[in-house]
Write a protein that binds this DNA or RNA. Structure first.
Lengths: 137, 137
DNA sequence: ATGCTATTGATAAACTATTATCAATAGCGC
DNA sequence: GCGCTATTGATAATAGTTTATCAATAGCAT
């Protein structure tokens, strides 16, 4: 990156402000709110550059295209809402001694992905789902 | 499925005997040890049928193509060896109260993927990696 | 403000994984 | 063993995502 363009600022700005991992389409749409002419090619190109420069990292969920978020958020896990499909960060950790694995395997890292309903999509008080849902785990 | 073919038997047999989630390529190669003419098209076709019939389920890991394993193994998690890329089953569970999420979110299920070295790829005694690795988590 | 050229926008191309096509093959009932 | 037709093998086609191309645009140093 040698020039400070509106497109690049918009893309990094969107990722910074929204505060959850965004898909290329989400970045395109949100970015076009700032720079209407923004194209998907520029989104991909800029994401690639931002990754190379260390500003952002790809967030990979099983069976889904990459999302992107700020590197400075550090290591953490994700929650995907099964209703709105938005992905949120979870910064709590699992206690080390609760990581299950055969004794002769060496665990170097782990990924935890939670699925359920985000606060926006939780059925408002009165429903019967919330407590029942716990049994699905 | 209306006919009992060598190809189908070979594919289901391989998945059953190997006992860990297999990629389409692994299934093709292992299957060709039984039926040399086996083609990748038949692998995909048969996997699709076996899923429809409920014999197998796809195993999805972040950023990777589907692997397949027996449905009757039930719900569990996976360990991927960063050295040989093989994926293994983990049948232990995480204690429910250790699942981290915001209070106003409803967690319905979760996925746990461990990464590290499987027993085959663990550096034999004398290396310095094993204990050091724990700090990476 | 002007000029150089990095960057953009539009779209074609590439890539990977999976599915469709179709003539040849091979289960299986008779 | 014969014949019917489901299944196979080889490969083309598709789908979804990401990358390459290239003329037009727009930072930014002067």
């Amino acid at each position: 990156m040698e020039r400070n363009t509106r497109q690049r600022n918009a893309i990094l700005g969107v990722i910074t402000e929204v505060g959850r991992p965004l898909s290329t389409q989400e970045i395109l749409v949100e970015g076009q709110a700032v720079v209407p002419s923004l194209s998907i090619a520029t989104v991909y190109r800029t994401l690639k550059d931002l990754i190379t420069e260390g500003w952002i990292v790809p967030v990979k969920l099983p069976g889904e295209a990459d999302r992107y978020e700020l590197t400075r958020l550090g290591k953490h896990y994700h929650f995907k809402c099964s209703s709105c499909s938005k992905v949120f960060d979870i910064h709590e950790r699992i206690k080390n001694n609760n990581l299950p694995a055969p004794a002769d395997f060496i665990v170097e890292s782990y990924d935890l992905i939670l699925y359920g309903r985000c606060s926006e999509c939780v059925p408002k008080s009165g429903g019967t789902e919330p407590e029942a849902a716990k049994h699905l785990i």
